[in-house]
């Protein structure tokens, strides 16, 4: 029996957090939630049972790729709670990712079963021999490939994968294994997460036909959700304004 925990990464106010969790829960009550809170500390956070504060400064970047924003602190902070909940799968979502179908988890679980994989992600590519800017930036540093050489369980140790940070879906075993890593250098999350899973021996596969609905450069609004659902979207990203009315 599968049990999904949805990790909602946010920095917004209590009202916004409540509205966000309420929306997700109303759409599909059959899941657990962890609020991974990366914003400033406030009193209200102590009274929210499912909230985990993320203290990692590598999460709080402005120019995310250049400063190599990391979700590793999120993984490490959240992994013990995932174990406590006994979840079989983890859905890592950002606050501006909005589900539009009530059976989102069933769809993701079905796709995962069909692909026989441990991670599903958006915009997934092998990028080690390509023009992908994040990868080319990291390859300047010999420690980058040396790290994968060191931890890889695969024959081809130079493979580098890239995927979007939001909307990834994990088996809890793979999520936990990645959380346990101690990378020797700072790596951008879009490279680190899929590449770590791959070199630990897990199978990483795309959610290709949904990429267009998750593309960060195409800003969507609340009023687009119905139209995008009709076009086949399972969830939509980024909708920055979604909880804006609830933000202090």
């Amino acid at each position: 029996m599968s049990r999904v925990v949805t990790v909602l990464l946010t920095h917004q106010s209590q009202q916004a957090v409540d509205a966000m969790r309420g929306y997700w829960r109303e759409l599909d009550p059959d899941q657990d939630f962890i609020i991974a809170y990366g914003g400033v500390a406030a009193d209200w956070q102590g009274s929210v049972d499912d909230l985990v504060r993320i203290e990692d400064p590598q999460l709080r970047t402005r120019d995310h790729p250049r400063e190599r924003q990391s979700y590793h602190g999120v993984f490490q902070a959240v992994a013990p709670r995932v174990r406590e909940l006994g979840a079989t799968h983890v859905h890592l979502a950002e606050f501006d990712e909005i589900p539009v179908v009530s059976d989102l988890n069933d769809r993701l679980l079905s796709l995962m079963a069909k692909e026989g994989c441990d991670v599903l992600g958006h915009r997934l590519f092998r990028v080690d021999d390509t023009t992908q800017p994040h990868c080319m930036d990291h390859l300047r540093d010999p420690a980058f490939l040396a790290y994968w050489q060191k931890i890889s369980r695969r024959k081809e140790k130079g493979v580098v994968l890239s995927m979007l940070g939001c909307g990834s879906f994990w088996t809890s075993e793979c999520f936990d294994a990645v959380a346990c890593l101690q990378p020797s250098m700072r790596m951008y999350l879009e490279l680190f997460l899929p590449t770590a899973a791959h070199h630990l021996g897990y199978r990483v596969r795309p959610i290709a036909d949904q990429d267009v609905f998750m593309a960060p450069e195409i800003i969507k609004s609340k009023s687009d959700l119905t139209m995008l659902k009709e076009q086949g979207a399972w969830r939509v990203h980024p909708v920055k304004e979604m909880w804006l009315g609830n933000v202090k």
């Binding site: 026989g116 092998r126 793979c174 021996g201």
Partner: peptide
């Protein structure tokens, strides 16, 4: 010329350890 980057399709080896 150029080709689009490939989509990874590697098998699982984690359980084989």
């Amino acid at each position: 010329g150029f080709q689009k980057a490939s989509v990874p399709d590697y098998g699982r080896v984690a359980s084989e350890q």
